[in-house]
Computed example of a mutant assay.
Amino acid sequence: MADQSIRVEKSQSRKAKPDSNNLVFGRNFTDHMFVMDYTEGIGWHDPSIVPYQKLSLEPSSMIFHYGQSVFEGLKAFRTQDGDVQLFRPEKNIQRLNNSNERLVIPPIDEELGLEAIRQLVEIDKDWVPDAEGTSLYIRPFIISTEPYLGVSPSHHYKFIVIMSPVGSYYKEGINPVKIAVEDKYVRTVEGGTGEAKTGGNYAASLKAQEIVEKEGFSQVLWLDGVERKYIEEVGSMNVFFKISGEVVTPMLNGSILAGITRDSVIQLLKHWNVPVSERRVSMQEIYDAHQNGNLEEAFGSGTAAVISPIGELYWEGKHLVINEGKTGELSKKVYDTITGIQYGKLEDPLNWTLKVEKSSVNN
């Protein structure tokens, strides 16, 4: 690391902020962004907070050709007291470096990465909306920028953080969704890049998503890419099932992303003494549990929705309606607790939040 002091250049022209009650995900961006460069032989250098602006890259930049990139997603929340806080941001930075390792990208200094996010949010804290259920979405990402068409790891990268105010995921209340079990396409395989948060995984999911949406389903339930029988993720979320009082979720096996919300759900359940296990879960097991009346709830977990209840699964021509298509008691409790902690409405017994306070940056 050549230089760990963050240079700050304030924008001279501020944008008009969108209406907090009519926010569209990922369409409006704050006044500033964080940028840091990597050069082989120097390391990560020149960390800066600058006005939000376009990037200038060579057409031959390796990101456009081989997809060597990683990203993260987290949020800043405005509490009832008007404070701004982050939810487990250190976990996002740690996961970013895990993704870096898989994509052969040099790791970033985790303390610097966290401080960059904290300072950026502090500078643009007026962009954190205060309407019910809204937040400031934070997108850190790294791209390979070397102008070279050879297939190899890049020698140059950019680490960038941009932010966007976003609305409530559930504008009309938390409602269960219908999910189709995918039997043709796969998201990734063990030994692939499934455990990394990289763009290629999401590009690979688009075809199946497009097909099931036309058939009236919200998302797909991904099965493993080898035997096509074990459950992995639901859409771009981790997935949980409550069977006979026990909550089970697919274990991390190298092809499943280690979600921060997933980990939060598991920790909360253990805190409440609710039985929870991480293991292989087959679709046949879920079908049998449904037939026996033991499948009590199912839900996805992720940054955007926090908890997304599953009201129906469609598998091999069979419709499996779960909990009469209603949101389960445990799903609702988990959702209310995590969002309550995020917005400062509930106590934080597991020390998950980080307050964004005034920093001594160079203006």
Score class of each variant (00 low, 15 high):
Ala196Glu: 08
Val248Trp: 14
Met1Lys: 07
Ile341Pro: 00
Lys332Gln: 15
Val220Trp: 12
Ile310Ala: 04
Leu252Glu: 13
Asp348Cys: 06
Thr79Pro: 13
Val356Ser: 05
Pro106Trp: 13
Ile266Gln: 03
Gly340Phe: 05
Val104Leu: 15
Gly67Phe: 06
Leu23Lys: 03
Ala304Met: 08
Ile307Gly: 00
Leu96Phe: 10
Val151Gln: 05
Val189Gln: 11
Pro176Ala: 13
Val35Gln: 11
Glu58Asn: 15
Ala289Arg: 11
Glu115Gln: 14
Val189Pro: 00
Thr134Val: 00
Pro140Gly: 02
Lys15Pro: 00
Leu136Tyr: 02
Leu221Phe: 03
Val121Ser: 02
Gly311Gln: 07
Thr145Ser: 11
Gln284Leu: 10
Ile63Gln: 08
Lys10Cys: 06
Gly225Asn: 07
Thr337Ser: 14
Glu190Tyr: 00
Phe87Cys: 01
Ala298Glu: 05
Leu252Ser: 06
Asp81Arg: 10
Ile49Gly: 00
Ala204Cys: 03
Lys10Gln: 10
Lys318Ile: 15
Val161Glu: 11
Gln284Cys: 00
Tyr343Pro: 00
Ala16Trp: 01
Val70Arg: 03
Asn98Glu: 15
Ile231Tyr: 08
Tyr287Leu: 14
Tyr335Thr: 06
Asn22Gly: 02
Lys171Glu: 15
Gly245Glu: 12
Asn362Thr: 15
Glu58Ala: 15
Thr193Asn: 05
Asn351Met: 06
Val181Thr: 07
Ser60Lys: 14
Val356Cys: 10
Gln209Tyr: 11
Gly133Lys: 04
Glu296Gln: 15
Val151Ile: 15
Gln267Glu: 15
Ser359Glu: 12
Ser331Pro: 13
Gly43Asp: 08
His65Val: 04
Ser255Pro: 03
Ala131Lys: 00
Leu295Ile: 07
Asp46Met: 10
Val321Thr: 14
Asn363Ser: 14
Thr261Leu: 08
Ile93Lys: 01
Lys358Glu: 14
Ile266Lys: 04
Val24Asn: 12
Ser154Thr: 11
Thr39Gly: 04
Ile266Met: 11
Trp272Asp: 07
Pro59Asn: 10
Val212Ile: 09
Ala131Gly: 01
Ile310Pro: 05
Asp126Val: 13
Glu246His: 06
Ile179Val: 15
Glu9Gln: 11
Phe141Ser: 01
Ser135Arg: 06
Val161His: 07
Asn92Val: 04
Leu55Arg: 09
Glu285Tyr: 12
Lys358Gln: 11
Lys318Pro: 05
Gly325Ile: 09
Leu120Val: 12
His32Asp: 08
Ser331Asn: 09
Ser360Phe: 07
Pro18Tyr: 08
Lys333Gly: 01
Gly167Tyr: 09
Trp127Glu: 09
Gln209His: 07
Tyr343Thr: 09
Ile162Asp: 06
Ile160Cys: 05
Val276Ile: 14
Pro89Ala: 06
Ala180Val: 01
Thr337Lys: 08
Tyr52Arg: 01
Gly26Leu: 12
Val186Thr: 11
Asp37Val: 01
Gly194Ile: 05
Asn21Cys: 02
Ser264Lys: 01
Pro165Trp: 02
Ala208Gly: 13
Gly300Ser: 06
Lys242Phe: 11
Asn98Asp: 15
Leu354Arg: 14
Met1Asp: 13
Val361Arg: 09
